[in-house]
Design a binder for these strands. Sequence first.
RNA 1: GCCGGAGUGGCGGAACUGGCAGUCGCGAUGGAUUCAAAAUCCAUUGCCCUCACGGGCGUGUGGGUUCGAGUCCCACCUCCGGCACCA
Length: 808
Amino acid sequence: MTYEIQQIEAKWQDRWEDERVFNVTEDPKRPKFYNVQMYPYPSGDLHMGHLRNYSYVDLLTRYRRMQGYNVLSPMGWDSFGLPAENAAIATGIHPREFTERQIPRMKAQLRRLGAVYDWDRELASHTPEYYKWDQWLFLELYKQGLAYKRNAPVNWCPTDQTVLANEQVIDGHCERCDSEVVKRDLDQWFFKITDYAQRLLDDLDQLDAWPDRVRTMQRNWIGRSEGCTITLEVRETDLAFDVYTTRPDTVFGMTFAVLAPEHPLVESLISGSVNEAEARAYITAAGSASEIDRQAEGDKTGVFTGHYAVNPANGRSVPIWIADYVLMGYGTGAIMAVPGEDQRDWDFATKYGIEIIRTVEPPEGFDGEAYTGTGPVINSDFLNGMEMAEAKATIIAWFEEHGLGRGTVNFRLRDWLISRQRYWGSPIPMVTCPTHGLVPVPTDQLPVVHPDIEDYRPAGRSPLAASESFVNTECPVCGGPAKRETDTMDTFVDSSWYFLRYCDAQNTEEIFDPAKVDYWMDVDQYIGGVEHAVLHLLYARFITKVLHDMGLVRSEEPFKALFTQGMLVKDGAKMSKSKGNVVSPDAYYSKYGADAIRLFELFIGPPTDDAVWSDNGVEGTSRFLDRVWRMATGQVGQIEDRPPGEADAEVLAEAHRMVKKVTEDIDRFSFNTSVAHLMTFANTLQSALREGLSTETHREVIRLLLLLLSPMAPHLSHELWEQLGFGTMLATEEWPAWDDDLVKRDVVTMVVQVNGKLRDKIEVAADIDAETAESLALGSERIQDWIDGHNVKKVIVREPNIVNIVVG
RNA sequence: GCCGGAGUGGCGGAACUGGCAGUCGCGAUGGAUUCAAAAUCCAUUGCCCUCACGGGCGUGUGGGUUCGAGUCCCACCUCCGGCACCA
């Protein structure tokens, strides 16, 4: 019996598929486990970095299945979007053709790894069967006022020739192509995610099986702040504007006010003002400056409007400035500036010679500039002497009483910009009629079919706009000539609900059957990259809440547990095609097989951490699997036909210890140590076999080993399971339980320390009492040498593990 | 700047709750087997002193708490990630 890797792996891949072992239906009698990984973009070849993630997902599918769960593990394709489109532009192949060529290749590669899914539920977002429901979802949001179109300054990527959501702008650069993003005023579609800001924030508290890191990132992104909106009147005019502040307690220190250059009041303020020319020049310059330049901290610029505002707290006049360090997109686009307690205002005031009044007493010896800490309020009339919290509450109450302002809550989160001027995405199902304006496409006319066109290159407007046959349509209201919306949806719309569609993927009548979703949701384990911490995971939570409010989904949160895996690193960079450092699994498949690759991917390090690829690591796990094969098939040591003896009992006990450790470690996602425990046991078994082991013990411990190994190295385990006659299909066997009596040790090593330093080890009974432990320790010859001539001050006993003797 | 996370042998990493630092693997060294090699097996492998028994040092740095600290606390250094003129 030699280990014919290629043949065995192909055999079991066929059998899992042919016997539909991992295809599932709703079964109320069994507990369910819904295991989902973030569906991939079908990019072509899988490299070792991808395989790491698939190995984790597949391990969980198989493990939970053996534990008796009804496990749903589906797979689909995030097949719309820029990568396919850009690849298509580069190669001249149509994105549809390109995509539909890649999908079967990817499937074949997953199969080669031995990864199993319920392929009956496969979906791909570029297919009309899928995007029809994207469009349906859009119309539902539109109906509820959660989708709207407006002209707004948006992030424009000059390379990809499309707008980007705020979440897709990283440090002022395009998330995809790294080009510098510019601002443009455009009519764009938005989803009103801000309506859900508070709920998205509050419900993070329920997600205790999410990494704290991700929850913190979402919290920061939502950016809730509590403060106060105050109305400032402009002297000698009937104009007024609102400012938002989180520090109303410092209002007496306001020595100027600032408007963002885009603020709507700016025009009426500067027109005819003494400073008009200068102000106009400044606004023009600020408007053309890139985001990056405007974000340069420290170097603050601005221009005086020529007008003064009234500080509502004390009636003082303060100059109104325009400065681009105030952003139109946050708060009211205008601020009260308090240089004494805000460093930005301090910088500005110092530069332009504006007065600075401290309203919080800095501590003794404070030598900084603006003081942002706590302390007693000063120079502030009736607030004097109060601490920050009290002063805030008092002044907000005072403003409210006098009708000058009110306590308000502000979020950093903005509405989600979902329209894209690109070809390869779901068409937005709206029509513009000269008579009836914006009209939604009736749901019975869905899908708005995404047409195949010749020229899909980006051109500053959607390529669909060039297709006469697509654009020209009838108004759903009057039947007159009308034009279709030509923008497509952000692919994050597709991915914000696909996990619901998996529950009922072939439904042609509705987006899904709520009863089926009810059975499978929530996702019990969601697995993906941490790069989606705010984008996809926030959008998916939002859409789930919308569907919940529509009564279609019971739960308010889609993903009960989230696992974010680390990346595979090679030559100091994430393994990726664009970095040119990918390692293809092909050579490793033919030399070592899928099991050795999988086991190495699990063994390489903690799953949450980045791991460094090593070329000969697979060799190690391959050696281990070879050894398991040889030991299982009787090619190592002596297997004796006799009743089990004492040595057998110890091997059996070790096997049960392995069962316990491996199970507990899988449960806490410590896959690398699970593998280590299997290897440790294999070493024990090998030594035991050298001495000779009974047939009975050998068979039992091999049985346990194969059960544990099967989610990690399924092909080899299945083959041995069958060959040794344990049964036909290991995947459907029950996960082993350990026997506590066997796991328990009778004799343990007790460490004896003198002043905290290890001085002796004594074998003692596991149930030793404190008194015996102490006298054994003190009686040890070695210990005597260390305490002779010293005064024993204290003996700490933690039986049966440790005795520490303190001498002076 | 703010908010997270990490720093342990030649390398990847282990030590989950304060209790033997270095499981497991890679690499390396010596040996067995072999005509030879591959494969396999055995042994050694944190650093320093010692023929040895044994001892000293050791988890980024400095301090602290504790009978006892990789683990807890304080300060700092370095690296990684997120946010960043958010009022």
